[in-house]
Write a protein that binds this DNA or RNA. Structure first.
Length: 909
RNA sequence: GGGCGGCUAGCUCAGUUGGUUAGAGCGCUUCGUUUACACCGAAGAGGUCAUAGGUUCGAAUCCUAUGCCGCCCACCA
């Protein structure tokens, strides 16, 4: 039944079949029975796969990690260790958000117009599709990972662990929320960590500006409206007399007084030795202000989140209006021009070169802003991570990367983990609505939703409507249905509604819409009615009222009307009695704009003035209130969750232990710390260092013992591959042409740890040829296996010459084996490849096969024919085993021909 | 400004702790269709190991400088 092989190996016919064979065998799972292993108590071997971003398809960089990790896994599996390779995918917060934003842009949409839940849902769908693609690509590349343990960073049990870590950090005082100056991308509308900024050399004019008696140099004249001081070096004699004094200055928007302070940070040699201090828009100035908090005014914001001049602080100043709303560069030009006219500019150095912080994704110049963000106090975490490396609990390959790692950790700064995007793990911090006190990772008892009724014709026409009882119009009904859709996921138990028809209808439509999910009870409540508007009922709002506080003061009322105070009293009475009874239920409260304003006033503990400034609600607008255990500080019940999400690296930094704790029962105990973390050197700080810090912090143990870092994949001209350059080699494309095996081995041959990998199609083709060579050795042997008389072993009766060759060959291949084993144990993949390549091609094929050919001729003694073939077969099988981690498909396929029924992947090395 | 890495055959790179004529792939030249393989075989050309010093019996390898290339970190009003 022996088949004659084709003269060429057909990877397209083979790979899928072989992968299916492996997967069916169950041998990817570490607990699979390995009969030859004998002692399964041997040390397990575990690698957590760096989860690829679920927002695209695999590139060559992924192919590199698949290859290296699969080599390690297959090698140790064959050596008899209980081997786990745990696959996963990363939601990749910001990265995915950016990818998705681009997709939205193409569709003419943008994320700021899409409700949070809907946007999250759409991105979820998108990532699930990418995930599927990637999984099939990983299979195509031969990854022998345990799919039964696959994880996603947004799996609920992973998220739970991330929350617990955050809570622990908070309790230990290592996570804190603070108003600090952070890097803000005006395009992506989010803050970024230090690592996500890219400094770019730029040439900008350096302006020398007159500031009363002093002169100073700046590249950002447009921020001068936000200046709160002038700083000089304390040792600078030129300004000694001015320090501590207020100076009168002339600005484009009028004269001002500003204080001169002394600070070490000022370089006497730069410019004029005097510097303007703009704490709201410059990180250094922010620091200077912190040091002189008592002497000078705090930050004055003059640039908004879109990077436009915002002079609303100068409302009423006509000169300020000229600049308000301008983009930075436009403002700078205009200001330069105006200052020139005023004689405020003394000199311009047009070619001043400095480096500017930009967004690493879009290159937009980052705008420093002061925002409340969550930070991790990293110093204490870093100390442990440093010690782990110094004590050699963690080894680095290449070793030089350890220095880089240590240097970074020793100079680490606090880590901003808040991101203003939707895609990610929402920060589990709730703030008390009445006193802002945070609660971390609390149990949400229930959710309450205040919903305004849908549109009536009165609303549509802009007429004041209080007690006037009119129904919803078509739009209003549609709005109510939409609100119902949004409320659907929340398991609403109860709907309480004002008994006016517009609310009644809204409530009924909502109830109808959410019916499939829950059968909520509806109660009608007279006390939730809109305020009686008295004599102004039915008047055109636009004409009558310019803003809400025109309606009347908190106490005031028109003839026959009700005051806000009265409204508040009755509405709050109703609200609190329902809250008392139903605080554990999810409740929708359908009511009116005025009522909502007063309820919010009460909940947020606002004074009347502030309450009346609350903007009015749109029809069917929903306000979510989360009910938690009473606030410790003020006793309030209602909270709202932080709208930010965690930096992805905060969650992926917990990946090794999170992926194991949420796995099978004993996984964490068995496989943690894992053995090897293999990833690209470009994420040494982003990921590796943070995994060590967070792993040590959360579990008390290092997350892995060895760190192997591979380089970037470059094209044959040593250029980084990028879509825009069009020099990207699609790994699946070349695998399709030359086979996954050829791609894999080409990626490891001639490459050492930490070095960039130069790959070309030529190189891959070269290794495809090697595959063909191997195939033909097998073909040759199998050709000589035919014929019934050759089936049986002929014992020891063959020639002495052959016996000598046998002995020598075996000794030789044993030596090879020793070397290859040694290299693999030391992560020297390229050396192992070189030895194997050489041995198989230039020894096994060129020497062994050639020299044994004559014994295989029909003229030779039968015993010699059999013996010669058996010698070759032994050498081939040993070669196949050693080559298997590198080229799993073809070696398995050949092995299947030689030993049907057995699986090479599980053979003993 | 600080750090790291590289500089070895036309190209891409190996060369593990210093040890005999410095290696591989691709490319090149010549020859060869020998019943596994032309995605092959045989033979061959091609390197003062960036430069200058030094240590050593011996240096691509260790040390010191220099040059160029690349990367990382920090910072700049």
């Amino acid at each position: 039944m022996l088949e004659i092989l084709e003269s060429r190996y057909d990877h397209q016919k083979t790979e899928e079949k072989i992968y299916a064979l492996w997967e069916k065998s169950g041998l990817f799972a570490p607990e699979a029975h390995q009969p030859w292993a004998g002692n399964l108590k041997r040390k397990p071997f575990a690698i957590i796969m760096p989860p690829p971003n679920a927002n695209g398809s695999l590139h060559l960089g992924h192919a590199v990690f698949v290859t290296l990790q699969d080599i390690l896994i297959r090698f140790w599996r064959m050596r008899g260790r209980k081997t786990l390779w745990l696959p996963g995918a990363d939601h990749a917060g910001f990265e995915t958000q950016v990818v998705f934003d681009k997709k939205l842009e193409k569709e003419g949409r943008n994320r700021f117009e899409i409700p949070r839940d809907q946007l999250f849902g759409e991105i979820w769908e998108f990532t699930q599709n990418s995930k599927k693609t990637m999984e099939s690509q990983l299979r195509k590349l031969g990854a022998s990972c345990d799919w039964s343990r696959e994880k996603f960073t947004l799996d609920p049990n992973i998220v739970k662990i991330v929350y617990e870590t955050f809570e622990k950090l908070y309790k230990d005082g290592l996570a804190y929320r603070d108003n600090r100056i952070v890097n803000w991308c005006t395009k992506h509308q989010t803050t970024l960590s230090e690592l996500e900024t890219k400094y770019v050399e730029k040439k900008d004019p350096l302006y020398y500006i007159k500031y009363g008696p002093v002169e100073l140099a700046t590249v950002r004249p447009e921020t001068k409206f936000g200046d709160t001081a002038v700083a000089v070096n304390p040792r600078d004699k030129r300004y000694a007399k001015l320090v501590g004094k207020e100076i009168e200055i002339e600005t484009l928007i009028g004269p001002a007084k500003i204080k001169v302070i002394a600070d070490e940070a000022v370089d006497m040699k730069f410019g004029t030795g005097a510097v303007k201090v703009t704490p709201a828009h410059d990180p250094n100035d922010f620091e200077i202000w912190k040091r002189h908090e008592k002497e000078i005014p705090g930050p004055k914001v003059v640039i908004d989140k879109y990077g436009r001049i915002d002079l609303s602080a100068f409302a009423g100043n006509e000169k300020a209006e000229r600049y308000h709303g301008l983009k930075i560069m436009g403002a700078r030009e205009l200001i330069e021009e105006d200052m020139r006219k005023e004689g405020l500019i003394t000199k311009i150095d047009p070619e001043y070169s400095h480096s500017v912080a930009t967004c690493y994704k879009c290159g937009t110049t980052l705008e420093p802003r002061i925002l409340p963000q969550w930070f991790i106090k990293t110093k204490p975490l870093a100390e442990k991570a440093i010690r782990a490396a110094e004590k050699k609990e963690i080894s680095f390959h290449p070793e030089s990367s350890k220095k880089v790692y240590l240097h970074w950790l020793k100079n680490i700064r606090d880590w901003n983990i808040s991101r203003q995007i939707v895609w990610g793990i929402r920060i589990p911090a709730w703030y008390c609505l009445s006193c802002s006190e945070p609660k971390i990772n609390p149990k949400v008892k229930s959710r309450w939703f205040l919903v305004r009724h849908g549109e009536t014709d009165y609303n549509k026409m802009g007429l004041i409507q209080g007690a006037t009882d009119t129904p919803l119009n078509e739009t209003g009904m549609a709005q109510a249905r939409e609100a119902g859709q949004k409320l659907k996921p929340y398991n609403i138990d109860l709907i309480v509604s004002s008994d006016l028809i517009r609310c009644r209808q809204t409530a009924e439509i909502i109830a109808e819409t959410i019916k499939e999910e829950t059968g909520a009870e509806i109660l009608f409540e007279e006390k939730l009615r809109e305020r009686h508007q008295g004599e102004i009922e039915g008047l055109p709002r636009e004409k009558f009222l310019k803003n809400p506080r025109d309606e009347y003061s908190y106490e005031g009322k028109y003839m026959g009307a009700e005051s806000y105070r009265e409204l508040e009293e009755r509405a709050w009475q109703a609200f609190s009695s329902h809250h008392l009874k139903n605080h554990h239920k999810n409740v929708v409260l359908v009511t009116h704009g005025g009522v909502m304003r007063m309820l919010i006033k009460r909940i947020k503990n606002l004074d009347p003035e502030a309450a009346l400034s609350i903007p009015s609600r749109k029809n069917a607008e929903i306000i979510q209130l989360d009910v938690l255990d009473k606030c410790k500080k003020c006793g309030g019940h209602f909270f709202e969750q932080d709208s930010d999400v965690f930096d992805t690296w905060f969650s992926s930094g917990q990946w090794p232990f999170a992926a194991l704790i949420t796995g099978k029962k004993t996984d964490f105990k068995t496989y943690y710390p894992t053995d090897v973390m293999e990833t690209g050197y470009d994420i040494l700080f982003f990921w590796v260092a943070r995994m060590v810090m967070l792993g040590l912090y959360a579990t008390g143990k290092i997350p892995f013992k060895d760190v192997y870092l591979h380089g970037l994949v470059l094209d044959k001209d040593k250029k980084k591959m990028s879509k825009s350059k069009g020099n990207v080699i699609d790994p699946l494309g070349v695998a399709e042409i030359y086979g996954s095996d050829a791609l894999r081995i080409a990626l490891v041959a001639g490459n050492t740890a930490g070095k960039d990998i130069v790959i070309s199609e030529d190189k891959i083709r070269g290794y495809r040829n090697f595959a063909t060579k191997l195939w033909n050795i097998a073909r040759f042997i199998l050709l000589h296996r035919t014929g019934p008389h050759l089936k049986k072993r002929y014992g020891e009766k063959y020639s002495k010459e052959l016996k000598d060759m046998d002995r020598k060959s075996l000794a030789e291949i044993e030596a090879i084996k020793k070397k290859v084993t040694n290299h693999l144990e030391k992560f020297e993949f390229h050396l192992a490849v070189e030895i194997l390549y050489h041995y198989i091609w230039h020894t096994l094929a060129d020497k062994k096969v050639e020299s044994l050919k004559r014994f295989l001729q029909p003229a030779s003694a039968l015993e010699d024919q059999v013996a010669a073939r058996e010698i070759l077969e032994k050498l081939l099988i040993e070669s196949l085993k050693m080559l298997h981690p590198f080229m799993p498909f073809i070696t398995e396929e050949i092995y299947q021909k030689l030993n049907p029924g057995k699986i090479l992947m599980a053979e003993k090395w």
